[in-house]
Write a protein that binds this DNA or RNA. Structure first.
Length: 221
DNA sequence: CACCAGGCAAGTA
DNA sequence: TACTTGCATGGT
């Protein structure tokens, strides 16, 4: 495949810095990471606004709530019954184990904290890595559907590649740098929007010139 | 109208 | 282990 640095440089030149994650505080970012699961970010914005308006963007405010009370404000984000439970799992973990102190939480070693997050019901690899990287500033690469699709469409990985296969590809090919991981993943999402399922706009993709010899953008994902 | 969006867990064979 | 299915709102 093309060197990761070339891919990164082309994306950054084409799109500029993405200023991710769209959220003001680490806690808001963590909440967003749950709410955005398999959901358009636009829908999450309304849910987060509802939480902010209710004074609920705080671990100590959320932890004592019942799942039912959380359902109404987060409804626009979809899967609201499911996500109310998942949010409470995360928030109670933060409140019980770290006394709601996110600085303390993110001071734990990356590998240990990652396993603790993965042990919570509702937090899988992508959500855990999003929290660690974007809320905690820790150097772990985030792989999402767009990452997978963009790489597969350009023939750099197979469609059957798994989460850790892709994550290791980035982490072994780049210097360990949270800022670089942050920007790179955000840029992959940005270019991924040109490669949505039905109408891949490969002609507008800044990565087109990096396609393998004789390769074409593979449209079927 | 159908399809999709920055996943994950539980069920089935 | 490897598939499949449920979860839900809002935009195109």
């Amino acid at each position: 495949m093309a060197p990761l640095r070339d891919i990164y440089d082309r994306l950054l030149t084409a799109f500029g810095p993405q200023k991710w994650w769209p959220g003001d505080t680490p806690f808001e970012i963590m909440v967003g990471a749950i709410l955005v699961q398999n959901t358009a970010w636009k829908n999450v914005e309304k849910a987060i606004r509802n939480l902010a308006d209710a004074g609920l963007l705080d671990p100590h405010a959320l932890a004592p709530l019942d799942a039912e009370e959380l359902q109404e404000p987060i409804r626009p984000a979809g899967y609201y019954r499911l996500k109310a439970k998942r949010l409470l799992h995360l928030v109670r973990f933060v409140a019980d184990r770290y006394d709601g102190d996110l600085d303390a939480m993110f001071s734990v070693s990356l590998g240990v904290l990652r396993e603790e997050l993965l042990a919570l019901n509702g937090i899988g690899p992508e959500t855990a890595d999003s929290i660690l990287l974007y809320a905690g500033g820790l150097p772990t690469f985030v792989v999402d559907t767009y990452t997978h699709r963009v790489l597969a469409r350009h023939g750099w990985i197979g469609y059957e590649a798994g989460y850790y296969e892709i994550k290791d590809l980035f982490e072994s090919g780049l210097e360990e740098d949270a800022s670089l991981y942050n920007e790179f993943h955000a840029l992959l999402v940005r270019v991924g929007h040109l490669h949505c399922r039905k109408t891949p706009k490969c002609g507008e993709c800044p990565l087109a010139e990096l396609l393998p010899e004789g390769g074409i953008c593979q449209p079927d994902f």
